[in-house]
C-alpha cells in the first residue's frame, strides 16, 4: 500500500513539475497570446483589455496558482454576462476555439486513442513476429532482408510514409478513405476502415523498431544457459522459443511498448496531420501555430500524465513478468 501511495505521490510530483515548467517556459516566451486575439487593428487599450480578460495581467506565480486551483474548483474568465465558465477540472480555456481545454482534450482523445492503441497492437504483433522469425532464422537471407527492411522503415519519416501510403492505397488504388475519422460508437466498421491506413503507417515504422528489439533480445536470451537447459530437457523447439525465449524478452519489449504507447497517447502529430484526424496531435500543432497557450499547456500536461501512467503500468507489469523485480523492490521498500 505504501508503495502504491509513494508511486502516486511521485506521479503527482512529476505532473506538478512539468506543469510548472511548461507554464514558465510558455508564459515567459515572447509570443503574447493576448496579442494574437487582440484583433486587427490592435490598440494598446484593447490589448490590455484582452490581457486582463484572459488572466495574463497577473504575475506569473499568481497565474500558475489560478491554473492549479482551476483544476479542482473550475474558473471563470471575465465578470460580465459574457463571462466564460470553465468547469472543474479546468485545464484552462482556449479563447481561440471557445472551449475549455478539458473539453477539447476529451473531444480529441478518442481519436488519438483509437489511432494509438490500434497501431500499437498492430506493431507489437508484426514487430515481435518479424523479430522472432529473424532471430530463429538468423543469418539467412530472410533474416537479412527483414533487418534491412526494418532499418529502412525505422529511418522513414512518418509523414512521408503516410503520404506515400495515401497516394498508393488512397488515391491510386482507391482502397481506403483518404481522410477523416468516424467515431467507434457511430460505426465500428467505418471506424476501423478509416483507421486502417494510419494504423498501418504508424505500425510499420514502430514494428521495425520492435522487430530489431525482439531479434536482439531473443538472440541474447537464446544464448542463455537456461535455454540450453530447456533443450536438454527435451522440450520442443517451439516450446523453448515461447516459454523460455520470448517469455524472457517480454520485459524489455513491454518497457518499450509502454513508453511508446504512452507517448503516442499524447498525440501522433504527423500521422494525425497527414490523415486529417482531429486528434490531440493536430490540436497541439494547431495550438502552437496560433499561440494558444492554454491548449499547449493542457495537452502537454495530458501527454505527461499518459507517459507517467504508462511508466507506472510498465513498472507494475515488470513485477508480474519478472519475479525478481518484486523481490528486489520488497527489499528496498519494505
Amino acid at each position: 500500500m505504501t508503495r502504491v501511495s509513494k508511486r502516486l505521490g511521485g506521479m503527482i510530483l512529476v505532473l506538478l513539475i512539468v506543469s510548472f515548467l511548461t507554464y514558465v517556459v510558455l508564459i515567459a516566451a515572447p509570443a503574447d497570446p493576448a496579442l494574437m486575439s487582440c484583433g486587427r487593428p490592435c490598440t494598446p487599450d484593447r490589448l490590455a483589455d484582452a490581457r486582463a480578460f484572459m488572466g495574463y495581467d497577473e504575475p506569473l506565480i499568481a497565474q500558475y496558482v489560478s491554473f492549479l486551483t482551476g483544476i479542482f474548483t473550475g474558473r471563470t474568465f471575465g465578470s460580465t454576462a459574457a463571462a466564460v465558465e470553465c468547469a472543474a477540472p479546468c485545464l484552462g480555456y482556449s479563447f481561440r476555439l471557445g472551449a475549455p481545454v478539458t473539453e477539447l482534450i476529451a473531444d480529441r482523445a478518442p481519436v488519438t486513442f483509437s489511432l494509438a492503441i490500434g497501431a500499437a497492437v498492430l506493431w507489437l504483433v508484426l514487430g515481435v513476429a518479424a523479430g522472432t522469425i529473424s532471430a530463429v532464422k538468423r543469418g539467412t537471407l530472410l533474416d537479412r532482408a527483414a533487418m534491412t527492411l526494418s532499418v529502412a522503415a525505422v529511418s522513414a519519416p512518418a509523414y512521408l510514409v503516410g503520404l506515400i501510403g495515401l497516394l498508393i492505397f488512397g488515391f491510386t488504388l482507391d482502397m481506403v478513405p483518404v481522410s477523416g475519422y468516424v467515431p467507434l460508437t457511430e460505426s465500428p466498421i467505418d471506424w476501423a476502415w478509416h483507421l486502417i491506413l494510419p494504423w498501418l503507417v504508424l505500425a510499420l515504422i514502430s514494428a521495425a523498431v520492435y522487430a530489431r528489439l525482439t531479434r536482439t533480445q531473443l538472440l541474447d536470451v537464446l544464448g542463455e544457459d537456461f535455454v540450453r537447459t530447456a533443450r536438454a530437457k527435451g522440450l520442443r523447439e517451439g516450446v523453448v522459443l515461447r516459454r523460455h525465449g520470448l517469455r524472457n524478452t517480454l520485459v524489455p519489449i513491454v518497457t518499450y511498448f509502454g513508453l511508446d504507447l504512452g507517448s503516442l497517447l499524447g498525440g501522433a502529430v504527423l500521422t494525425e496531420r497527414v490523415f486529417s484526424m482531429p486528434g490531440l496531435g493536430s490540436l497541439l500543432i494547431d495550438a502552437f501555430g496560433n499561440a494558444d497557450l492554454p491548449v499547449i499547456i493542457g495537452i502537454t500536461l495530458f501527454s505527461t500524465a499518459m507517459i507517467v501512467a504508462a511508466n507506472a503500468a510498465v513498472d507494475l507489469l515488470h513485477g508480474v513478468l519478472d519475479p525478481r523485480v518484486t523481490h528486489v523492490q520488497k527489499g528496498i521498500f519494505s
Binding site: 494574437m36 486575439s37 487582440c38 484583433g39 486587427r40 487593428p41 490592435c42 490598440t43 487599450d45 484593447r46 483589455d49 484582452a50 486582463a52 480578460f53 474568465f77 471575465g78 460580465t80 459574457a82 463571462a83 466564460v84 479563447f95 481561440r96
Partner: peptide, 22 residues
C-alpha cells in the same frame, strides 16, 4: 467586448466613444 476579441476591429477606433466602450 473583451470576451469576444480577435476580430476585424477597424470600426472600434472609428466610432465615436468606441475607445471607452466595453
Amino acid at each position: 467586448a473583451p470576451e469576444l476579441g480577435g476580430g476585424l476591429g477597424y470600426h472600434k477606433t472609428l466610432l465615436d466613444g468606441g475607445e471607452a466602450y466595453k
